[in-house]
């Protein structure tokens, strides 16, 4: 919010909002997901533009609502309209606002994790990197296999915690080997997963949402 307002965007937070419904959808509970998704449409359909800070939420709205409502043409039409005006945060800043410099400043080496849905459903790869590059005092150090899954997968991480953790181990290894002091991602799921394990293991690396990095102005970093 801070970042968007700094860019002069007229931004609001409709208070009735809850969730896009992906949790239930991915679990297979489609009727539950549809109810929640309809609530999402009710809340957001009169907005001019919807900016979502998480790649998987954005792909749910932009890609998977089509599937969810394929037998409900009326809602499908509403969902497509909302989908078209929905943008993921980094994509919005770089490609709609048109800047990769949000006036942020910090210091150190950061590495970037490509969240799966952001990369493979929405094909957003460069925008977050441009934004990181635009932060004064920050250098982007790519890790090995930055596009590999972190093992979160929502329900997967609680249903198969052992496999999930084994996949995460690879990610943590690559993060550590990059030598960066922070890992940045645009997906709240991946971040919760990565941060949870790094804290448990006492790794001295911060897991940051890109918005957190962009909100830094050099005084609090």
């Amino acid at each position: 919010m801070k970042v968007l307002r700094r860019l002069g965007v007229d931004v609001g937070f409709p208070e009735d909002q809850t969730c896009c419904g992906q949790i239930a959808f991915n679990g297979g509970f489609r009727s539950h997901a549809a109810d929640v998704a309809k609530h999402f449409l009710d809340v957001f359909e009169n907005e001019e533009q919807v900016v979502v800070p998480s790649g998987s939420c954005a792909s749910m709205i932009k890609v998977y609502y089509r599937e969810l409502f394929e037998d409900d043409p009326e809602t499908l039409e509403r969902a497509q309209a909302v989908g078209e005006k929905t943008r993921e945060l980094s994509d919005y800043i770089v490609n709609v606002v048109g800047t990769s410099d949000v006036g942020a400043a910090s210091e150190g080496l950061v590495t970037y994790h490509d969240a799966c849905h952001l990369l493979r459903e929405l094909r957003i790869k460069e925008a977050p990197r441009d934004l990181i590059g635009g932060v004064r005092g920050i250098e982007l150090q790519e890790m090995e296999d930055s596009n590999a899954c972190c093992g979160f997968g929502g329900l997967f991480s609680v249903k198969f915690p052992e496999i999930s953790t084994a996949i995460l181990d690879e990610k943590l290894k690559n993060i550590a080997e990059s030598g960066a002091g922070a890992v940045v991602a645009n997906d709240c799921g991946c971040l919760m997963h990565i941060r949870g394990a790094m804290e448990r293991r006492g790794m001295n690396v911060r897991a940051m949402h890109i918005a957190e990095l962009l909100a830094e102005d050099g005084t609090d970093g």
Partner: peptide, 23 residues
């Protein structure tokens, strides 16, 4: 369901105030 998660990862404690309230 959740104990599988916390076997290897910390789970973020809910923030004291919701984002909506902060907003």
């Amino acid at each position: 369901m959740v104990s599988g998660w916390t076997a290897s990862r910390d789970f973020p404690a809910p923030a004291p105030k919701s984002f909506a309230r902060l907003w």
